[in-house]
Design a protein around this nucleic acid. Structure first.
Lengths: 347, 347
DNA sequence: ATGCGCATTTAAAACGTTTGCAATTTCGCT
DNA sequence: AGCGAAATTGCAAACGTTTTAAATGCGCAT
């Protein structure tokens, strides 16, 4: 095996052919004699020839990479999302031989500036954008640059068309409400975050819509809001809900981490789940299965979604479709033991 | 903002300078007049100039990327490792402006072939290799290619020198033994995997060494082995341990996922943890805190390790040090509630 | 004026690939 | 044998950058 990397020139010299012919032969051009093509292919295989990415990118304008900005997270925050997402994305890209490039944002560097750098340095042919904010400057930038991208999540106002895949949180939260209502619950709590992410609205609106649809004026909804990464504030907000004189009999959390905190605090307050309180989450993170009594939640199948996003993005890069590609994935209920009938005597 | 990407040529034309001068000015060469340098820098900033990665890579031979092959995992396996690792790696790389490229292996494609492709296509200046196998063809390949890499984990036989960072599993397992021995335990179980990864030996050897060090012939160790991804077999192996007429009073698991299964099966068998059985894991995954009664384990601080690996790799790429860079990170005990004194009447 | 040294700038080659166009070879046919 | 067309191959430019070596301009001493 050669210590140095083989180039087209070397291969051509060795075969007594021109670089052009070798290049064309490897690309499978019909105009090159079949016999030559086979001879070249075999020699390339033997030499372990791998085309140089940079050279190819330079001339073709295509890098074969899909970019993503590494989401910035708190210092000791366990984020099960990223691993799942990256794995799925990799799976979606591999069929077309694309690789993923992950660019981290340094301390004090905006996610947008990293994104700009990835786009404008020609590192990637397209990018994936996750966790859409209410006013998302990344989407605005990509649009005005007309750069291929697929968003995981949606903007609230549909003022411009783009490609997206989203998990139907609205539907899930409606489903959660209906299930709990049918179990006799009338007083609900929602634990949400204060960060301006669109998904919190979509989910909350889905819940509100289901309540409205039911048309029962006796239904009540209390909302507790806290910053996502401030554990203390989160606990406080939850306890305000739990320790109200008239507390909800069912709490729906924006995502599992919040739901797990609800269950912890409920236990601390001497409330039995689900006897005194039903809790439902969203995401189905690993810990949800282990936390007693087992959290009922919705599986967002991040990995599968990411895989589809990867495939969508490759389509977008290849075909530049006019109509936006959109896909709403319905999460599936994972029924564990954290929900049950409303406690009697408290409707 | 321009719709097209600015190039050096455009910038040069606009400034009435040669491409060479502009390039040098942006690189901050002393030989370019300070006034010119400032003028160029300002114009570049205004135009939003970002150098083209491919062109730069082609001429310099440096891509500014660090590569990693996306570890192949079972279809529905939640792998908290990857997210943590990738985040840490990103953090470690960002200071030098390097990005991470993640290449997935398609179905039926070996991890080695993907690695070869990444290396030989010039996509990356160095790579990270994780989960070292007993006979690891990736390491052999990288060595003979003399390609910069840092391994997360070690080979067992030190027949060739390379750069690595490893978590000191041997020490942790020794520590676990000492702690349990001092709590009166004499009969131990070890749950391990059948895959030929070096870390299982390192940890098991650490345990054995601690036992030997103690020199107490009454100490017994039973070992249960199962394939990593076969949940059924894992449960069987664990139950053989739990249902033996003379069962261990303390079980040490190779990593948390195994330990959690031990706790589940113990509960199913009517054994109270830690009263009837002590359990200790390794990794400190998120679920370990939630699984009752709270798993005692060792925190391997993946993210921090990955960060250091990133920094090490950048050093290796930049300096090509002669002496191998090595670092053994001691994991810290996370003492929760799954271990306690040996049950009386059973020594 | 001439030449010299210095500061500053530039021309041109190189990196490895793809591709438009042109050149060469082959071959059937008269 | 000669011709033309078809099949096959090759030349050279291009992609955007870095870098080597050389050129240019300028002030100053001779």
């Amino acid at each position: 095996m050669p210590a140095r990397v083989t180039t087209l020139k070397e291969l051509a010299a060795q075969l007594g052919l021109s670089i052009t012919t070798v290049s064309r032969a490897l690309a499978g051009h019909e105009q090159i004699a079949l016999k030559t093509r086979q001879r070249v292919t075999e020699a390339a295989r033997q030499a372990g020839y791998v085309p140089n990415t940079a050279a190819r990118t330079l001339v073709s304008g295509r890098s074969g990479f899909v970019g993503m900005v590494l989401p910035i997270r708190g210092p000791n925050l366990v984020d099960s999302f990223l691993g799942e997402f990256v794995t799925g994305l990799g799976e979606g890209l591999v069929s077309h031989g694309s690789d993923l490039i992950l660019a981290a944002a340094a301390q004090g560097q905006s996610e947008l500036s990293v994104l700009r750098h990835v786009v404008e340095s020609g590192r990637a042919d397209g990018v994936v954008v996750t966790r859409i904010a209410e006013v998302d400057e990344r989407l605005a930038y990509l649009r005005q640059r007309n750069f291929p991208f697929v968003a995981h999540g949606r903007l609230l106002d549909g003022d411009f068309a783009y490609h997206w895949l989203d998990t139907d949180g609205a539907h899930a939260f409606g489903e959660a409400f209906d299930m709990l209502y049918d179990l006799g619950h009338r007083h609900f709590g929602l634990v949400t975050i204060s960060e301006p992410m669109t998904f919190r609205h979509l989910r909350q609106d889905g819940l509100a819509a289901a309540i409205a649809r039911r048309g029962d004026p006796s239904v009540r909804l209390d909302v507790a809001t806290a910053p996502r990464f401030d554990r203390g504030a989160r606990i406080q907000a939850i306890n305000r809900l739990l320790h109200a004189t008239d507390r909800p009999t069912a709490i729906v959390a924006l995502f599992d981490e919040l739901a797990l905190t609800v269950m912890e605090e409920a236990a601390r307050a001497g409330l039995a789940v689900p006897r005194d309180l039903s809790v439902i989450g969203f995401d189905n993170i690993a810990a949800s299965a282990y936390a007693p009594p087992g959290l009922t939640t919705f599986d967002a199948s991040i990995r599968q979604c990411a895989r589809e996003i990867g495939e969508m993005l490759l389509t977008v890069i290849g075909n530049r479709p006019d109509a936006p590609l959109t896909r709403l994935v319905r999460p599936t209920l994972v029924s564990r033991a954290s929900h049950g009938p409303a406690p009697i005597g408290r409707n």
